[in-house]
């Protein structure tokens, strides 16, 4: 019953329409890249949900920890001067 495991796991990304980024929609198993693409079309775009699909072997993805407390993201926390709201400009300055 485990022979299916020899079909690798692919992550699927779909571009909803022109002008939008590809967005992760889920995963599937396939024997190879081409089958992954076909399966992704059948599984994730049955109702015009996309105009372009990316499939990528899950094992090929390098990921950060999703934990928001991860120190990876801490350095951006104290740099408020990177945001436009950090700067006080008089109300009567136009177009800013």
């Amino acid at each position: 019953m485990t022979e299916r495991s020899s079909w690798p796991l692919y992550e699927v990304f779909v571009r909803g329409k022109r002008g939008l980024n590809h967005v992760h929609v889920g995963s599937l198993h396939a024997a190879d890249d081409e089958m992954a693409l076909h399966n992704a079309r059948n599984l994730y775009t049955r109702r015009n949900e996309g105009v372009s699909i990316w499939v990528v072997r899950a094992e090929a993805i390098t990921a950060s920890s999703p934990d928001e407390k991860d120190p990876l993201f801490a350095p951006s926390g104290d740099k408020v001067y990177r945001h436009p709201t950090f700067y006080t400009i008089p109300d009567d300055v136009p177009h800013m």
């Binding site: 022979e3 299916r4 020899s6 079909w7 024997a31 190879d32 089958m35």
Partner: peptide
């Protein structure tokens, strides 16, 4: 499933 896996291995 076996045939698809065999085909993928051959192609690779």
């Amino acid at each position: 499933r076996e045939a698809a896996a065999a085909h993928a291995a051959k192609q690779a």
